[in-house]
Simulated scan of single mutants.
Amino acid sequence: MYVAVKGGERAIANAHAWLAEERRGDTDVADLSVTQIREQLKLAVDRVMAEGSLYDPDLAALAIKQSRGDLIEAIFLIRAYRTTLPRFGASEPVSTGEMACDRRISATFKDLPGGQVLGPTFDYTHRLLDFKLAADGEVPEAPSRDVAPGDVPHVTEFLNREGLIEEAPAEDTTPPDLTREPLEMPASRALRLQALTRADEGFTLGLAYSTQRGYGRNHAFVGELRIGMVPVEMEIPELGFAIEIGEITLTECETVNQFKGSKTEPPQFTRGYGLVFGQSERKSISMALVDRALRWEELGEDNVGAPAQDAEFVLYHADNIQATGFLEHIKLPHYVDFQSELELVRKLRREAGADQVPEAAE
């Protein structure tokens, strides 16, 4: 804390009051409610939930309001709150094949059972400012579409029928909980995926982009991108079976990647995978590309020295809360450290004679 700042605790209290005043803004403008943020800034809410590892739209919206729209600060607030919550148990693995899809597209197959569902997306907009939004006009009602959960097969199953794509790699052991145990290397794929789900979207996007530009030789197709609600079930010991306790929105991406084969494996496609809370298309696709790049050793490929292939580099730098904490701590007082550095530089300059003032030019 800035206890050395003139005024001490009083100065800090005043800084908090000033922050609250800036957060509120012009009092002649209506206060922004948590409900408005939850309903109208949904993509921001979804990102905070995903990287904060807590699925609660109301709390995520509150964190965005409290942080004045700073999403990393909001994620920090959510993670801090998460540590205070009791753990009652673990849910059963969700079945994304039963997803009630609001959006489902494939870049590999045009005709899908159930059809391609464009859903709410910016993909086909013109990226022009819509000044009608500034006029607070009524939004026209979208055509209704009934979305019912059911068996929605994944696109990769079509390739799997012919053996053209690897079987989904499975791990028998339960991965450690990254929210409770520190990350250790080497990390299993399940642990890497867990870390990538919580990773900063911008960092993951940059790594994914690098693989597309050649830093990792990772040419991929989006086999399928789907967004929708899935039921969450939890086994109740007293009942002896699992019951549905709620629903959550997920974004899932499976990429289809080239693979030349090996001495023991025929040429076939391989997979990259991304699964994120809420509607987080950019993040889920990025996650799938980075996941595939990190599998180079498992698949017997060459390591070309690309950043996205270095598990330690990726996983130890992907968490925006850790990065923010380490970066922003340099704002705090380092008077003693700096004074020792200052004395060292002065000593070196004296020994080198650099402390002599040059004579003025005539």
Rank of each mutant, 00 (worst) to 15 (best):
M1N: 12
A4G: 14
G7H: 13
G8T: 00
I12P: 03
L19M: 06
L19H: 09
E21Q: 15
R24C: 03
R24L: 13
D26S: 15
I37D: 05
L43Y: 12
M49S: 03
M49E: 06
A50G: 10
L54D: 09
A60S: 11
A61H: 04
L62K: 08
R68P: 00
I72M: 03
R79F: 02
R82Y: 01
T84K: 15
T84G: 13
L85A: 07
L85H: 01
S95F: 02
M99W: 05
I105H: 01
S106E: 14
F109K: 05
D111C: 00
G114V: 07
G115Y: 05
G115P: 05
T121F: 08
D130L: 10
A134T: 13
P140E: 13
E141N: 12
A148F: 08
P149T: 00
R161K: 03
L164I: 08
L164Q: 10
T173F: 08
E181G: 00
P182F: 08
P182H: 11
L183W: 09
L183G: 10
E184R: 15
A187C: 09
S188E: 03
R189S: 04
R198F: 04
D200V: 12
E201P: 01
T204L: 15
T204V: 12
L205C: 11
L207D: 04
L207M: 11
Q212T: 08
R213D: 05
G214R: 09
G216A: 13
N218C: 14
F221I: 03
E224Q: 15
L225T: 07
R226T: 02
P231L: 05
V232D: 11
M234G: 02
P237K: 15
F241L: 14
A242S: 15
I243F: 02
G246F: 02
E247H: 11
Q258Y: 13
Q258M: 07
G261Y: 05
S262I: 02
T270G: 07
R271N: 02
R271Q: 07
G272M: 00
F277W: 08
E281F: 04
S286Y: 04
S286H: 06
M287L: 11
M287S: 10
R292H: 10
L294Y: 09
L294K: 07
W296Q: 01
A311V: 08
F313R: 02
A318W: 01
N320P: 06
Q322Y: 00
A323N: 14
L327W: 07
E328D: 10
E328R: 12
I330P: 00
K331E: 11
D337K: 08
F338E: 13
S340Y: 01
S340R: 13
L342V: 04
E343W: 08
L344W: 05
R349S: 06
A352R: 14
A352M: 09
A352S: 11
P358M: 05
